[in-house]
Design a protein around this nucleic acid. Structure first.
Lengths: 218, 218
DNA sequence: ACCTGAACACCGTTCAAGT
DNA sequence: ACCTGAACACCGTTCAAGT
């Protein structure tokens, strides 16, 4: 995949560089991954990095490849809705392992072919289940948006202080203007993230797709 | 809401400053909103801005308030699912009007009380419909994630070139490895964004919530 | 009291130069 | 051929100073 084009620098190869970059970004956040910092970490001059990748964007593309590499999807089993569920949960696992990929996707599209395997799997299952192409596409988009959106918007990655701050705001909300929220502060703050909350939503979506499929059949 | 604390500078008041900041961010993107650029636009020294807001984060909070200010929610009518639908579409309108708020939310939580009105409305409708607190919370989260996630991840805001690039990648995908996607390139690229695609997903979610509600009733 | 320029500690990347 | 420091055009913000 990632062979240096113009220059072939010393011991390191581009994939190793991308792997280290991914580790930094996953551990400390995407903003913490700087060309200067990465070069220092590798013990090379900043500009030497530009022998491996023409710019930071290409480096990030390679980091996406590194994150996706070797992740085998689940072997299909059960009904279409069970297959859908397991592929979505498989994708979610990958996103939780590599939060920086989520962060990157919120800033720009990520169009690495390997990253489109999720799309391919989901669309395949939906078509097989009986959705016509015109519906499989937006139905995929729903699952994609929910899966990535949840990873991006819910405080799994978010700092502990973010969560505390959210609870503080919830607690100080004037009950007169926010009667429904005030009545269920605990449930509201519990529902900000986590596996159970994710699965609740996923199950509703699958219920909805099932309803649509019966509608199509009749 | 936003009264200067330490200093009371000349003609401008903080709300006006926040309004201009919002306009810049909505038009040119959140990154294009810089303290230096905003100050220049206002014809004041950069550091004078710090008389209005202690730091950029507070300025962005005020910009959120400006975006939310005066947006009246739809008057409830119809069944709970119709109410849900119209509140979600109302929120989506606001997000499309103010793409920078979406961008901001993907970078950090946005906990302005006024921005929680969406939550309050949705949760209220769900409770009224018959969802217990323990389910209304994750059900809200599903609607929130989908609505904001769609705005953040679909190329409504995204540049035209992003869309073209995505179509190019789709077109060059090897059919052997991506049979399902290759069979429906047109549908796949059409489903990347837009009102119809959003509504398709929203309708599936509402179908799923209806299914769950009948399940709860029986 | 109100306003602000200089300076600090950062970015990604170009350019010209080192070996 | 391979590597890199200096420099450029940016950031947000602190600090000390102007009026």
């Amino acid at each position: 995949m990632a062979t240096a084009k113009s220059k072939r620098p010393k011991g390191l190869d581009p994939d190793q560089v991308a792997q280290i970059a991914l580790e930094i970004a996953d551990r400390d956040g995407l903003d913490a991954l700087t060309m200067r910092g990465l070069a220092e970490r590798l013990g090379i001059g900043t500009m030497t990095l530009y022998g491996y990748f023409p710019n930071k964007e290409k480096l990030l593309d390679a980091a996406v490849d590194a994150a996706v590499a070797g992740r085998e999807p689940p072997t299909p089993s059960g009904d279409w809705n069970e297959q859908l569920r397991s592929v979505v949960l498989w994708a979610r696992e990958g996103l939780l392992e590599h939060p920086s990929i989520v962060e990157l996707r919120t800033r720009r599209p990520v169009l690495r072919p390997d990253a489109l395997r999720f799309s391919e799997l989901i669309v395949g299952i939906l078509r097989e289940a009986g959705f016509p192409a015109a519906e499989a596409a937006p139905a995929f988009r729903l699952l994609f948006t929910y899966t990535l959106g949840f990873a991006a918007l819910s405080p799994a990655t978010g700092t502990e202080s973010d969560r505390a701050e959210a609870q503080r705001v919830l607690a100080t909300l004037p009950a007169a203007h926010f009667p429904a929220l005030s009545e269920m502060r605990d449930e509201a703050s519990a529902a900000m993230g986590g596996e159970e909350v994710f699965r609740y939503g996923l199950d509703r979506i699958i219920d909805g797709l099932e309803a649509q499929l019966s509608r199509l059949a009749s």
